[in-house]
């Protein structure tokens, strides 16, 4: 009875270890795939690591929750129904139960380890990781990425990507979108005479279309304003000014009229 309990402890411990390695290998495969794709698009490796970590956690937790005894029975048909019965009745030590435990121990001892591992899937995953990482190294070494390729074929997308990045940074630097406070801290943007005008600008509904971004148009004010602006005296008068002062005054007016 003690032996069968020890056997089940080892089975469960080993299957948890195998599940951990399997989930890790699958996560590594995903990491390699995303790393390859992100390298091609010049996206930070951190995102690939983040995605594969999340996948690993979800996959491992899901696999851990499965009934490991049932999973083993499916992979090794000779143990079908026997293994779970022996596991559920591992504390029973009557002659019939002991006979069952003995049978199960013999079957498990003689079981091929390949029955618990899918060798084909393992090979595919390891090969996949190796190939993807190799390709990633190659494209990094030669500098192959989507921007170089598009430039070579005449579709520049780097400026567009840069513009998108700028807009994103600009938006993130601004006041939070759904602001309830006033735009310029002081709501009084303009004051007309004695009237106070309160204006609140809601930036949330502002649409920025990058296709319409270009140099600002020059405003033509030609029709509204005169070409020259000058001043001249419409009337004049003589004052009783002494002769020696008249020259000085004439000279003064000439100067200011220049």
């Amino acid at each position: 009875m003690r032996l069968v309990k020890k056997m089940f402890f080892e089975i469960i411990f080993s299957s948890i270890a195998l599940l951990f390695l399997d989930s890790l290998l699958t996560a590594l495969l995903f990491f390699s795939l995303f790393y390859f794709v992100f390298t091609f698009f010049r996206i930070d490796i951190l995102f690939a690591a983040l995605i594969s970590t999340v996948f690993f956690l979800i996959s491992f937790i899901k696999k851990i929750r499965q009934n490991k005894i049932m999973v083993l029975e499916k992979r090794y048909p000779q143990l079908e129904e026997k293994l779970r019965t022996s596991y559920d009745c591992s504390s029973d030590d009557n002659p019939v139960a002991l006979a069952l435990h003995t049978d199960v121990i013999n079957l498990v001892t003689n079981a091929d380890i390949n029955a618990f591992l899918n060798s084909k899937k393992l090979l595919i995953k390891v090969s996949g990781v190796s190939v993807l990482l190799f390709l990633t190294i190659v494209i990094s070494a030669y500098g192959f990425d989507v921007f170089r390729i598009t430039e070579r074929i005449g579709i520049p997308i780097q400026p567009v990507v840069n513009r998108i990045k700028d807009i994103a940074v600009d938006i993130s630097n601004r006041v939070p979108l759904r602001q309830t406070t006033e735009y310029m801290e002081n709501g009084k943007v303009a004051q007309l005479g004695d009237q106070e005008l309160n204006i609140t600008i809601d930036t949330y509904n502002t649409d920025i279309d990058i296709n319409e971004i270009n140099e600002p148009e020059k405003n033509d004010f030609g029709g509204s304003f005169p070409a020259e602006v000058g001043g001249y005296a419409q009337e004049s008068y003589e004052e009783d000014i002494s002769t020696e002062h008249r020259e000085v005054i004439k000279d003064y007016f000439k100067r200011i009229s220049r």
Binding site: R84, S86, Y87, D88, C89, N94, V96
Partner: peptide, 12 residues
């Protein structure tokens, strides 16, 4: 006695 001692799994 053997009949009563025959083990049965929980899911069954």
């Amino acid at each position: 006695h053997y009949t009563r001692q025959t083990p049965i799994a929980k899911d069954l």
